[in-house]
């Protein structure tokens, strides 16, 4: 099985602060990896390292076979990234945002138009297609950002808190789409603060203070840390352990 993501001791320091601390992991293609951890644990920084948007201070990493330090461009071309920050164009409409991102990823003409319609319908954004993206409420913006990230059907998708601020019914919709993508062979790395979502990932990583404190399938983590209890116990136990 080929690994979509492979890292060894990936580390990033800012001054004397270590945001990502020796992360070693292997993520097989076609899996959903969920990253959990408190605010400031290093989840977003790790994603930026994997996308080659930030250079590691130490360690190595390969994404889709490309080196994160030397071949960041190739990685970004092939990956979809839904950033935690609002990266849409405020002054453009949802329609125009999708057009823009589509062209950026080389989609044109009919292919772009039909994919766009499909996603606008999925996201329930049709009534808002001519509104300014900046004026959309939190949940709608998330849906638009998600649509922009999956527009070009990338083999690897980074979703940074896609469902934060999204209502419960729509969260289910997001996950239906994530499952569809994974079933179609897409590898998905997703961060979340919702533990019910974590339960349905193939693999889980729990980050604490920059370290990958736990990594494995939900069942493995439950067995290792909490017996038969839920993942919430796993997280709580880890989060309360003094950092070593």
């Amino acid at each position: 099985m080929t690994a979509a993501i492979e890292t060894q001791g990936l580390t990033r320091r800012f001054g004397d602060f270590t945001a990502v601390d020796g992360v070693t992991m292997e993520v097989p293609a076609g899996t959903i990896l969920g990253l959990l951890g408190p605010n400031g644990a290093g989840k977003t920084t790790l994603i930026r390292l994997l996308l080659g948007l930030l250079a590691p201070t130490a360690g190595r990493g390969r994404v889709l076979g490309y080196d994160v330090v030397r071949e960041g461009e190739a990685i970004r071309e092939r990956c979809g990234y839904m950033s935690q920050r609002f990266t849409l164009y405020h002054d453009l409409t949802p329609d125009e945002n999708l057009d823009f991102y589509g062209r950026l990823y080389g989609l044109r003409g009919r292919a772009l138009a039909s994919r766009k319609e499909e996603l606008l319908a999925w996201a329930g954004l049709r009534p808002y297609r001519h509104a300014r993206a900046g004026a959309l409420g939190g949940g709608l913006r998330q849906r638009l950002a998600f649509a922009c990230a999956v527009l070009h059907c990338p083999p690897l998708l980074f979703l940074d808190e896609p469902t934060s601020g999204v209502d419960p019914a729509s969260r289910r919709q997001f996950w239906d789409l994530i499952y569809d993508l994974a079933d179609g062979g897409t590898t998905v790395l997703v961060t979340t603060h919702f533990l019910d979502e974590a339960e349905h990932c193939d693999l889980l990583g729990i980050m604490l203070g920059g370290r990958l404190a736990a990594f494995g399938t939900p069942a493995e983590l439950r067995a290792a840390y909490a017996g038969e209890e839920g993942l919430d116990r796993v997280f709580l136990r880890l989060a309360q352990e003094p950092a070593t």
Partner: peptide, 23 residues
């Protein structure tokens, strides 16, 4: 998203341990 009713916590890991997202 835990819900408190009937003297128990109900939620994604509630008495039955299933999430709100489809299994």
């Amino acid at each position: 998203s835990w819900r408190w009713h009937g003297r128990r916590w109900h939620g994604p890991y509630g008495p039955d341990g299933q999430g709100e997202v489809p299994a």
